[in-house]
Amino acid sequence: MEIGAFTGSLDTISLNNALRYTFFSVGIRELVHHVIDRLGPNENVIDCDWWKNRPRKKDNTTAKRTEKMEYAIRAGLSEGLEIVPILHWRS
């Protein structure tokens, strides 16, 4: 799906159409949304302790895109976790 969306978006650039850049932008946007949803599934994000502690305005069952990206980067680690460097560089 992701490769097809990317190549399809690239193919729209070669069209002789005034909206080709719009089609390309929409395709890339949807590709990014698909990748974010794959790397940060909603169910996994809302199970994290750091997600539960954040204030919500209305919907308490759906993670925002930024929270899904944070989950993809942090892999569900809690906010208070101290990360100890594995390698100690000599100066």
Rank of each mutant, 00 (worst) to 15 (best):
M1D: 07
E2K: 15
E2S: 09
I3G: 07
I3Q: 13
I3S: 13
I3R: 15
A5R: 15
T7F: 13
G8S: 05
S9E: 01
L10W: 04
L10Q: 07
D11Q: 11
T12Y: 03
I13Y: 01
I13K: 05
S14F: 12
N16M: 11
N16W: 10
N17K: 15
N17M: 07
A18M: 11
A18Q: 14
L19Y: 14
L19W: 10
R20G: 03
Y21A: 04
F24I: 01
F24G: 01
V26E: 06
V26P: 06
R29G: 12
R29S: 15
R29M: 12
E30K: 12
L31H: 04
V32W: 06
V32Y: 06
V32M: 09
V32G: 05
H33S: 13
H34R: 15
V35C: 08
V35S: 07
I36S: 04
D37E: 10
D37I: 02
L39A: 09
N42D: 08
E43W: 09
N44Q: 15
N44K: 15
I46K: 09
I46E: 00
I46L: 05
D47S: 15
C48E: 00
C48G: 03
D49G: 09
D49C: 05
W50N: 03
W50I: 00
W50K: 03
W51N: 00
K52S: 04
R54K: 13
R54H: 04
P55M: 08
P55W: 09
R56Y: 01
K57E: 03
K58M: 06
K58N: 08
N60L: 11
T61C: 08
T62I: 09
A63G: 02
A63Y: 00
K64G: 06
R65E: 13
R65D: 14
R65M: 15
E67F: 05
K68R: 10
K68P: 03
K68W: 02
M69A: 08
M69Y: 05
E70S: 07
E70K: 11
Y71V: 01
Y71N: 03
A72E: 02
R74T: 04
R74S: 06
G76S: 00
G76V: 00
G76N: 01
L77D: 08
L77Y: 10
L77N: 13
S78N: 14
S78D: 13
E79H: 13
E79C: 10
E79D: 14
E79T: 13
G80R: 14
L81Y: 13
L81M: 10
I83Y: 08
P85T: 01
P85R: 05
I86G: 07
H88A: 09
H88E: 12
H88I: 10
R90T: 14
R90I: 10
R90A: 11
S91I: 11
